[in-house]
Computed example of a mutant assay.
Amino acid sequence: MKITGISLWHVPLTAHVTYTMAAGKSCATVETVVLALDTDIGLTGWGEVCPIPHYLPAYARGVAPVVQELAPVLLGADPVGPEAVMARLERRLQGHDYAKSALDIALWDLTGQAAGLPLHALLGGRQAETMPLYHSITCTAPEEMARIALDALDQGITQFQVKLGAEADWQADVARLRMVREAVGPGPLVYGDWNCGATSLEATRVGRVVRDLDVMLEQPCATIDDCARVRTATGLPMKLDESAYDTASLLEGHAKGCMDVAALKLSKFGGLSATRRARDLCKHLGARMCIEDTWGSDITTAALLHLGAASAPDRVLNVCDLSGYVSPRLAPAGPVRHNGRIAPPTGVGLGVAPDRDALGPPDMMLD
């Protein structure tokens, strides 16, 4: 089997609710990049990456130039064995992991189709039939956030990410955490996420006031050192997200005692291949994992669900149903949540494929 063509689309996605984060950042309408690798035997592998503007060093319109630069290595290559292909791509062009993430997912999709197996069978074997979801609550008035949490609780969700830091008022963040915690009652997991938007002083003040609550903090500051200071000062468990993006950062977060949980986002690491290695390291380190991605629809959701299903259930804290937050869905027959949990797609490879007619003419075609 040989790769004979590469097609790429830019598809706007609209969030059902505008997600407001710290430091004035928000996510309402974003552009996801959909990629198809066609082969000489009629199989097509699909990939997707969806950067959030102004969030991480990633840019949706930067994917196409990277793919164009890598096309001489991809075209004519045998896609079976994604890690070998990705190694050749890295020798051609270092870095740009977010753009390579879509390529890596598509290579895994082709490998699964060629083997006649779902991806979770190739990523370690299925260990979980379904996985728990979390619900991300936009940073708005505390009372409204509590209402959103109750609605999600009624749908079976038992893990709640509370966005913090929309304004320079640390006491408002205290109210957000307290009101959501009280709304959902004891038992469910509640964690406050600053997306790097707080100083260690602000995050420590919030954490010390809510120490009587059963809550976790997520990535309050931009550096691991500052997150570690907050972890030590508050005594509250912590999840690393933006600072956890490769094996070195995972080792640093663990060594500095502030990585009780790590967010393993496919596009941060560069696709399934690299995120699988991160998963195995987290298991070795004893950290819990949120297996997810920055944003996206059915293709990236399918990829992360296969990886989650092939991971040790006692180490997977949650996964994310990205396609449940946006419209339109790229593959309407993709997996859907049920009672706060979700399963990977059935079928070989990713188990999802968008309708080319619905996507329209590609923005880039290489052959």
Rank of each mutant, 00 (worst) to 15 (best):
K283I: 15
L281A: 09
A302Y: 10
H284N: 05
Y325E: 12
L307S: 08
S311C: 12
E292Q: 13
D321F: 01
T294C: 14
H284A: 15
N318E: 15
P332R: 01
R315S: 15
T300P: 00
A333E: 13
A287W: 01
A331L: 02
S323F: 02
T300C: 13
N318F: 15
P313R: 05
L281W: 08
H306W: 10
T300M: 07
P313K: 05
V336A: 08
H306T: 09
L305W: 08
H306Q: 13
R315G: 05
P335A: 09
V316M: 10
Y325G: 00
R279L: 04
L317T: 08
D293N: 10
L307H: 08
A331C: 15
R315V: 14
T301A: 07
I299M: 05
L307Q: 09
I299S: 01
S327C: 03
A312I: 02
L317W: 12
A331R: 09
P328R: 01
T294M: 12
A287Y: 00
K283A: 15
G308W: 09
N318S: 14
P332F: 09
I291G: 02
T294F: 00
A309H: 05
S311P: 07
W295R: 06
D314E: 15
C282T: 07
G286A: 09
P332Q: 10
D293T: 03
S311F: 07
D298K: 12
D293S: 04
G286F: 02
R329I: 01
L285N: 08
S327R: 01
S323Y: 01
H306P: 05
L281F: 08
T301C: 11
L285M: 11
V326G: 00
P335F: 09
V336W: 04
T300W: 01
L307P: 07
R288L: 14
R315L: 13
C320M: 09
R337H: 02
L330R: 10
R315M: 12
D314S: 12
T300S: 12
A331Y: 00
I291H: 01
G324A: 13
A333D: 15
G308Y: 10
T294W: 04
P335M: 06
S311R: 01
L322I: 03
D321A: 07
L317K: 00
L304H: 10
A312V: 06
H306G: 06
S311W: 06
R337D: 11
C290D: 11
A333M: 06
N318D: 15
I291S: 07
L330D: 00
G324K: 00
D314Y: 11
V319W: 05
W295F: 14
L317F: 13
M289S: 06
V336E: 14
W295A: 15
C282W: 05
C290I: 13
T294K: 00
L322G: 04
E292C: 12
I299Q: 03
R279V: 15
V316F: 10
G296H: 04
L281K: 06
C320V: 12
W295E: 09
P328N: 04
D298V: 05
L330K: 13
R279T: 14
Y325F: 12
D293V: 02
Y325H: 06
S297N: 14
D293I: 02
D321P: 01
T301E: 04
P332V: 11
G334E: 06
T301R: 06
L285I: 14
A287N: 11
V326D: 01
S327P: 00
D280G: 07
D293Y: 03
